[in-house]
Design a protein around this nucleic acid. Structure first.
Lengths: 182, 182
DNA sequence: TATAACATGTAAGCAGTTACATGATTGG
DNA sequence: CCAATCATGTAACTGCTTACATGTTATA
C-alpha cells in the first residue's frame, strides 16, 4: 500500500500528527496521491500495530489533544526496502478516454464540448504546476542548483508539467480533427 | 461507474456475451480501462436488473451455453446521457512518483535503476501503441482519412502514444539530472 | 495426454470515498 | 454569532482484485 509508504516518508523527516500529515499531503504530493483524514487515521493506527510507528499523546492547552507519530527503526527499514524495490506497473484508467472511444455514438459537437472542457482543465493545471515549480526554485536554489530533497520534488512537479502540456496539445489536435470532420 | 458505460458502448454496436465483451476490452480499451471476467459477469447481471440490458441464452452444441446480452432503449438512452455529461475530473495516482518524491532517502543509484526500468517500460509501451496505431490506419483508412468510428479510436491511441513519449523524455531527463548530482 | 479456448460464476478481501459524529479555540 | 482551524475518529458503501469452483471441446 503506497499510502503507508508516503506516511513513512514524511515521518522519516519529522514526527507529525495525522492532521499535520494531511496538510503535508495537500501541500506536496496531492497531485499524484491524495488521502483523506478518514483514511489516514486508521492507517496510522494499523502502522503502529505493525511496529512501524510509535505514538505519543501531546496534551495541549489551546487546542485539542494531538497524537504525534514517530517512525521506528522497523518503519525506516520498511521505507528503504520499498523505495529500492522494483516498481510494479500500475494499471491506468481513464473514463474520459472511454467517452472518446465511444464518441461515434453521439454528435461530434458534444465531444468537442467535452474536449474543450478537458483542455481548459489541463491549462489551469499547467499554470498551477508552473507556479509550484517556480516557488520551489525560489525557495531551494543554491549555487549548485536545487538542494538534494528539492531536486527530487522538482522531478515530480516536472512530470506533472510535461503531462499537462501533452494533454493540452492532444486536446487541441483532437478538437481540430473533429472539426475537420464533415 | 465507467465499466457499465463501456459495456453499453460495446453492446450498442452488437449483442455479445460476457466472455466476448472481455475480449473486446482486451483488444481495444485495455490500455485505459481493463476489467476482469469476475467483475464483468455480475455487472451484466446487475445491468439487466436495472433494465439497461436483456439476456438471451444461446444453447450451443460445440461449446458451453452462452448468455447473449442485448442493449435496451433505456440502455441506449443511458449511454447517450453519459457520453454527453460533462466530465468529473478523476484523481491521478502514481506510486512511482511517491518513490521519486522521497528519493532523497536512499542512494541516488537506486533511484536511477528504477528510472531506467520505468524508461524501458515506457519505450516498450510506446512501440506497442505505435503498432496499434499503424494497424488502425491500415484497416480503416478511406479516401477522406479514417472512418468515423476509427477516428475516435485513433484519438485514444494517440493519447497513449503522446503520453508514453512524454514519460520517455521525462525519464531520460531525470536520469541525467541525477547523474549530474555529486 | 495435457493445455488452451470457451463459458459462467461466487466469496473474500483491499483501498478509497462519503457521510456522520464530537468538541475546543480563534478570528472576522 | 458564525465560520474556520485544530483534532480524532467510525460506518457504510463502491469498485476492483485475487482465489476458488465447474465443466466441455478442440488442438498440439
Amino acid at each position: 500500500m503506497s499510502l503507508k509508504h508516503a506516511l513513512l516518508g514524511f515521518l522519516n523527516y519529522e514526527s507529525l500528527t495525522g492532521y499535520q500529515l494531511k496538510q503535508f499531503f495537500d501541500e506536496s504530493i496531492r497531485n499524484f496521491w491524495n488521502a483523506s483524514l478518514s483514511q489516514i487515521y486508521p492507517t496510522l493506527n494499523q502502522m503502529k500495530e505493525e511496529g512501524l510507528l510509535t505514538m505519543e499523546v501531546k496534551y495541549q492547552d489551546s487546542s485539542p489533544n494531538a497524537k504525534i507519530y514517530h517512525i521506528t527503526d522497523q518503519g525506516r527499514a520498511e521505507l528503504q526496502r520499498w523505495l529500492a524495490e522494483p516498481i510494479e506497473p500500475q494499471p491506468y484508467r481513464s473514463a474520459f478516454l472511454i467517452k472518446i472511444f465511444f464518441g461515434a455514438n453521439i454528435d461530434k459537437e458534444q465531444i468537442i464540448i467535452q474536449l474543450k472542457q478537458r483542455l481548459q482543465l489541463a491549462e489551469q493545471e499547467l499554470e498551477n504546476r508552473r507556479q509550484i515549480s517556480e516557488k520551489l526554485f525560489q525557495k531551494f536554489s543554491t549555487e549548485n542548483g536545487l538542494n538534494r530533497k528539492a531536486l527530487f520534488w522538482s522531478l515530480t512537479v516536472d512530470f506533472g508539467i510535461k503531462n499537462e502540456e501533452t494533454t493540452v496539445a492532444w486536446c487541441k489536435e483532437a478538437i481540430q480533427r473533429l472539426e475537420a470532420l464533415q
